[in-house]
Design a binder for these strands. Sequence first.
DNA 1: ACAAAAGTGTTGTCAATACACCCATGG
DNA 2: CCATGGGTGTATTGACAACACTTTTGT
Lengths: 234, 234
Amino acid sequence: MSAKNINTHLIEIQDYFKAAISVDCVIFGFDENELKVLLIESDLKEFKGKWSLLGDIMHPDEDIETAAYRVLRERTGLENVYMEQVQAFGGINRHPAGRVITIAYYSLVNIEHVELKTHSNELHWHAVKDIRQMAFDHREILATCLERLQRKVIDQPVGFNLLPRKFSLRELQNLYEAILDVKLDRRNFRKKFFAMDYLIDLNEEEQEVRHRPAKLYKFNQEKYNQRHKKSLGF
Amino acid sequence: MSAKNINTHLIEIQDYFKAAISVDCVIFGFDENELKVLLIESDLKEFKGKWSLLGDIMHPDEDIETAAYRVLRERTGLENVYMEQVQAFGGINRHPAGRVITIAYYSLVNIEHVELKTHSNELHWHAVKDIRQMAFDHREILATCLERLQRKVIDQPVGFNLLPRKFSLRELQNLYEAILDVKLDRRNFRKKFFAMDYLIDLNEEEQEVRHRPAKLYKFNQEKYNQRHKKSLGF
DNA sequence: ACAAAAGTGTTGTCAATACACCCATGG
DNA sequence: CCATGGGTGTATTGACAACACTTTTGT
C-alpha cells in the first residue's frame, strides 16, 4: 500500500497495466409497436452465432463519446441522434481476447432513417423483450441501458427520438407502453401530453387506415429546449 | 472503415491502442450540517496545490468496483460502505501523464468512522458547496456525482449512510437540506419519514443540549431491503 | 350496417404544501 | 423565567387513476 497515486504523483502510465477500452452502443428503435435493439452476429468462436451489441475499440485520439458516435455512424449512417452514456462494465473475464473495459451508451433512433451499411448484413433489429442470450456480458449491459431508458422516459420526453417526425397519439402511447412494459389509460395519457404542451397539431390525418384516421402531431423541440434549461439545477 | 470489430472478430488487443484506466472516488460525508467530500492535495506540477479526488490506477486482476473499494479502504480504512458507479470520464487531455480514462464512483460514509490513514495527512474534508477549483476534470466529476446523489436521495433512503447509527430527525432533515440545497418544512418532513416507516424509535434522547432534547432513531435496514426487492421492476 | 379505432370529461383518492402554537430542557 | 429548538394537526391544492360513450372512416 503506497501513497503514490496517479492523481497526486507523476507516474509513467506506460509502466502500468493497460487494458483495452471499447465502447458498446445499445441502439434502440421502435417498430411494429415493439422496442427494438440493433445487434450484430458475433464471429468469435466463443460466441459463435450469438448476438452482440455494436461496439469498437476506442481510438487514441478520440474521446469516449466521439468513439460511440463513430460506431453509430459507421453502422447506421446516422448523425445527431440522441445518445447518453450509461456506465462502464469491466468484469475481468468479460472479453475472451483479454482485459477489455467497455463503456456503454444507449441511443434512440428513428428506425426508418437507418440504412444498414452494406458490409453489415449480419445486422438485425431484435425485439428487446424476446432477447434471451447474448455474447459477452451484453445482456447485462442491455438490461442496464433499458432500465436507464425507462427512468429517463418518465421524466423527460426523449421518446420522440424513436418516432417518425409525424405521429399519432396512439403511436406515442404504444411507444411508452413498449418501453415501460405497462398498459396505460388512453384518456389520461392524452390529457398528460396535451397538458405538457410539447405537441404541435399538424392538422393532418393518417392516410389509408380502415377506421377513423388519427390526427398527426410533431414534437415541439424549441419548447422542450427552453423548459429543459430552466429545470436544470434542481 | 472496416467490418472487423472487437465484438465480432478475433483481435489481438495488444496490437491496439491501450490507455490507462483509473477509478476516482467521490467520498461524501456529513459534518457540521454540511455535505463534505474527502480530497487530497495533488503534487503533480500541473496541479500544484490543487485538490483532487481519491483515485488510483486499476490493477490488472481486479474489476472496476474492486479497485474503487480498494481506494476507499486504503484511504479511509472503511469497508462495506455505500458505493455506486456514476460514469466514465475520458477527455483526451484530462490527465497530463497521458491518456487516462477514469471511472467515477461516489460513496457515502459516516464521517466519524473514517480514520484518515497516517500516510494521508494531505487528506482533508471539504464542504462541497465551497469548492471552486480542482485538479484535472475533478470538479466536473464531483458535480456529476452530486447530481446523481441528489436524484438518488429523493427516491431512495440512502442518506442514512452519512449519519451516525443514532440520529435525531433534525439531523436527518439537515442532511437532506444540505444534499439538496433547499429548505424543507419541518412538519412535512417528519410526516413523510414516519409514513415511510424506515425509522426505529430507540426511546433515547439527545444528551447535553441546552434545549428540549430530541428523540433518537435508527434506520430500519431490513424493512428497506424488503421494499427494495419488491419495488424493483417498477 | 358493421367493424375498428379515434376522440372526449368527470369524479375520487392520495400526496405535497402551507402554516402556528405549545412543550421540555438548561442556564 | 427565558432562550432554544422539539414536537404536533389541519386545510388546500394539484397530480394521477378509474371509468363509458359517441364519432369517423373503410368495407
